[in-house]
């Protein structure tokens, strides 16, 4: 079922497994359906993300419901398979560069897995600038590698060194990428009336949804949730 999705629109969104898992676990996959009605482009996943989110967990009692939900989303066209001949090579590049940015002593800190690198590589090879990812490390590495470096210094002390050249190279590779989380999808969905069915509890429903997605693993802080909810109360 692998697609060579050569007509991907630049407004498409490449989705990481972490976000799909968060949305499926909290019963918010319909948000993807709602938002996709008004977008030029599609929510895209790679073959590997499909294997990770659907194929493998279908056989796991504790996670098969999530897999069934995501399978339905795929069959209904809410999310689509996408691939490119260049993804594998690009992913290798992303891993090689990212895992040479930081060192502890002389040992490179291998923080990024091929799984996350493939998402970035797919986005780049399809010319799609939007990446949906809930896990924290990849997002911070793309948006603020200096912040990650500071965090490593706090974790590992003065043994940490940074290869500025590699950091700049990674920045060039990810230039123009916009990262967002399933929490932002929920926020925009609220603004478009997704929670109207809850009537006078509409804002409360959105707030509760954001907390549930945080507790499902989305890397949003309580402060960020509060910041959004202050504007909707």
């Amino acid at each position: 079922m692998s697609g060579d999705y050569s007509d991907s629109h630049s407004n498409s969104v490449v989705c990481d497994a972490s976000s799909l898992i968060s949305l499926a676990e909290t019963c918010f996959l319909p948000v993807i359906h709602e938002l996709s009605q008004g977008m030029r482009g599609h929510f895209l996943i790679s073959d590997e993300v499909k294997r990770e989110c659907i194929d493998r967990p279908l056989g796991m009692r504790s996670h098969s419901l999530t897999a069934v939900r995501l399978d339905a989303a795929l069959r209904n066209g809410w999310i689509r398979l996408a691939g490119s001949a260049d993804t594998e090579a690009e992913a290798g590049e992303f891993v090689a560069v990212a895992n040479e940015i930081f060192r502890v002593g002389r040992k490179p800190l291998r923080i990024l897995h091929r799984g996350e690198a493939e998402i970035l590589a797919l986005a780049k090879s399809l010319g799609v600038g939007n990446v949906l990812i809930d896990e924290r490390t990849t997002r911070v590495l793309v948006e603020s590698p200096a912040m990650l470096g500071q965090h490593f210094r706090e974790e590992f002390g003065s043994r940490i060194s940074v290869d500025s050249g590699r950091m700049r190279e990674f920045g060039r590779m990810t230039a123009g990428m916009n990262i967002f989380r399933s929490s932002e999808l929920l926020m925009v969905a609220y603004e478009k009336g997704f929670f109207r069915g809850f009537e006078d509890m509409e804002a409360k429903a959105a707030e509760a949804g954001l907390y549930s997605i945080k507790f499902a693993g989305c890397s949003i802080s309580f402060e960020e949730i509060e910041e959004f909810c202050r504007g909707i109360r």
Binding site: M39, V140, M147, C218, S219, S221, E224
Partner: peptide, 26 residues
Amino acid sequence: GKTLMSDLVGKTKTVNERLEHVRRLF
């Protein structure tokens, strides 16, 4: 998800900065 990890490290943009772009997509 049930820890404070994302509260301690990871705020790279304000909510509005991130939402500005996402709103344009939909």
